[in-house]
Design a protein around this nucleic acid. Sequence first.
DNA 1: AGGCAACTACGAAAGTCTTCGTTGATATTA
DNA 2: TAATATCAACGAAGACTTTCGTAGTTGCCT
Lengths: 129, 129
Amino acid sequence: MKTEELPRPTDAELAILRVLWQLGPCTVRQVHDQLAGTQTTGYTTVLKLMQIMTDKGLVTRDETDRAHVYSPRISEQKTQRQLIGDLLERAFDGNSSKLVMQALSSRRASPQDLAAIRQLLDQIEGGAL
Amino acid sequence: MKTEELPRPTDAELAILRVLWQLGPCTVRQVHDQLAGTQTTGYTTVLKLMQIMTDKGLVTRDETDRAHVYSPRISEQKTQRQLIGDLLERAFDGNSSKLVMQALSSRRASPQDLAAIRQLLDQIEGGAL
DNA sequence: AGGCAACTACGAAAGTCTTCGTTGATATTA
DNA sequence: TAATATCAACGAAGACTTTCGTAGTTGCCT
């Protein structure tokens, strides 16, 4: 059971992955329509990117129907961890607490968020992880 | 007092910035030698990158001596916050607690680190920030 | 059947990132 | 002084990213 090493998604690729995570398996049309709310990219641009992502292994494609259906090959969580781990190495010298503290001090988190983080800290210290 | 918007440093640029943060103002030679421990990039590659970084405003250059001396124009902290904020928007939908939790659960932090984070949580909840 | 809409595939262009070779100038050393 | 080393500058190549136009195919509707 080997976890293939997938390339770090680029900015545009990540935007597409987020749509797939949110909506589930999608056609190019669906992704494009969803992105249209935020971006203004042509249909063929999205198509091309998703073809490239298929080559890279970031998504899989079901070609049964004429409009191919794409699915993400990594979960949102795994990708988030990959990106954080990457940033950790590149900018924080592997010091995760520094990263956490920067994140906490740069953006406000709700009391609920803070409580959730406390709970996680408890779990970690309790050896639950 | 307007804080200029500097571009997000690329991977190679970030590696150079880290040397400057660690050693202070440096010549190209010093940066190259330092990077040689980890990387294997030619001298002129580093030179070119640092020239580009000067154009972008990421570093400043003192041309007094023949070997120009480069200094970072943003602090390590500010850059880290920029990178985290960026990742937050691109991959975490702005939800900072999710980011923190992913960071905490993906890498082990020492008990001291965890304590420091708890302290920071206290400060935030106490309205100190 | 004919025409229109939707889809994939392909190629190419423009921009960025990373790399390095070469050139010419300046300092150091023998 | 002459050879050698060090430096900045420049240009260019190759890879990658993002963009879109065009062509060709398939399905649908009248």
